[in-house]
Amino acid sequence: MEIDSLKKTFFISPTFGSITFQQVFEKIIEFVKEEPTKNYSLIVGSDSFPGEETVFVTAIIIHRKGSGGRYFYRKIKYEKMNNLKLRIFTEASLSLEIAEALKKKLSENGVSRLPVEIHIDVGKNGATRILVKEVIKMIVGSGYIAVTKPDSFGATKVADRHTN
């Protein structure tokens, strides 16, 4: 997804309500500037819920290590998807799209020092264990840090909270 198409996309913030991708980016920069000497992680994670339609939620989290953070999310509905592999790869693709747009905005604004992690909803146990290597290769091959269960809270806690 290009930044131009993200201009029409709204994210929800528990703190700021409905905001644009540009505003999300500005809020991230403001948050970092509040305490610039702290360490930060910029996390993107997606999760899905298959119901009548399949709901995908992608979360952007700015984590100030040891001092909390802020998050923003967007919801997209697709037709019902029963195939687990397709859902997991769609989640990873949605996260990569947002991560790419963030990385581009960061480099344009001279803030490229923020590392971008992609949290994926796969782990060594459960139904997704057969997909772990493939999904990690997809994320790492795209130039990002891949974080899996049980550490992938961006997908398994934050995005998951908003799938219903």
Rank of each mutant, 00 (worst) to 15 (best):
Glu30Ser: 03
Glu30Leu: 15
Phe31Asn: 01
Phe31Pro: 12
Val32Ala: 06
Val32Glu: 09
Val32Asp: 13
Val32Ile: 11
Lys33Phe: 04
Lys33Leu: 14
Lys33Cys: 04
Lys33Glu: 11
Lys33Gly: 03
Glu34Trp: 06
Glu34His: 04
Glu34Met: 11
Glu35Pro: 05
Glu35Gly: 00
Glu35Arg: 09
Glu35Ile: 04
Pro36Leu: 06
Pro36Asn: 03
Pro36Trp: 03
Thr37Phe: 06
Thr37Asp: 05
Thr37Tyr: 00
Thr37Trp: 02
Lys38Cys: 09
Lys38Ala: 01
Lys38Phe: 01
Asn39Tyr: 09
Asn39Trp: 06
Asn39Leu: 12
Tyr40Ala: 02
Tyr40Phe: 08
Ser41Gln: 15
Ser41Gly: 10
Ser41Glu: 10
Leu42Phe: 05
Leu42Ile: 01
Leu42Lys: 00
Ile43Gln: 01
Ile43Ala: 07
Ile43Asp: 00
Val44Asp: 08
Val44Lys: 05
Val44Pro: 01
Gly45Asn: 05
Gly45Thr: 03
Gly45Lys: 08
Ser46Trp: 02
Ser46Thr: 02
Asp47Pro: 10
Asp47Ala: 04
Asp47Asn: 06
Ser48Ile: 02
Phe49Tyr: 07
Phe49Arg: 15
Phe49Thr: 03
Pro50Leu: 03
Gly51Trp: 02
Gly51Met: 11
Glu52Phe: 12
Glu52Gly: 11
Glu52Tyr: 13
Glu53Ser: 12
Glu53Tyr: 15
Glu53Phe: 15
Glu53Val: 12
Thr54Met: 02
Thr54His: 05
Val55Leu: 11
Val55His: 14
Val55Thr: 13
Val55Glu: 14
Val55Cys: 12
Phe56Arg: 03
Phe56Ser: 02
Phe56Lys: 04
Val57Leu: 05
Val57Gln: 06
Val57Met: 08
Val57Phe: 09
Thr58Cys: 10
Thr58His: 03
Ala59Pro: 08
Ala59Tyr: 05
Ile60Ala: 08
Ile60Asp: 07
Ile60His: 05
Ile61Ser: 06
Ile61Trp: 14
Ile61Tyr: 13
Ile61Pro: 11
Ile61Glu: 05
Ile62Glu: 11
Ile62Arg: 14
His63Tyr: 13
His63Asn: 13
His63Met: 12
His63Pro: 14
Arg64Trp: 07
Lys65Asn: 12
Lys65Glu: 14
Lys65Val: 12
Gly66Glu: 12
Gly66Ile: 09
Gly66Leu: 12
Gly66Pro: 10
Gly66Ser: 07
Gly66Phe: 01
Gly66Tyr: 06
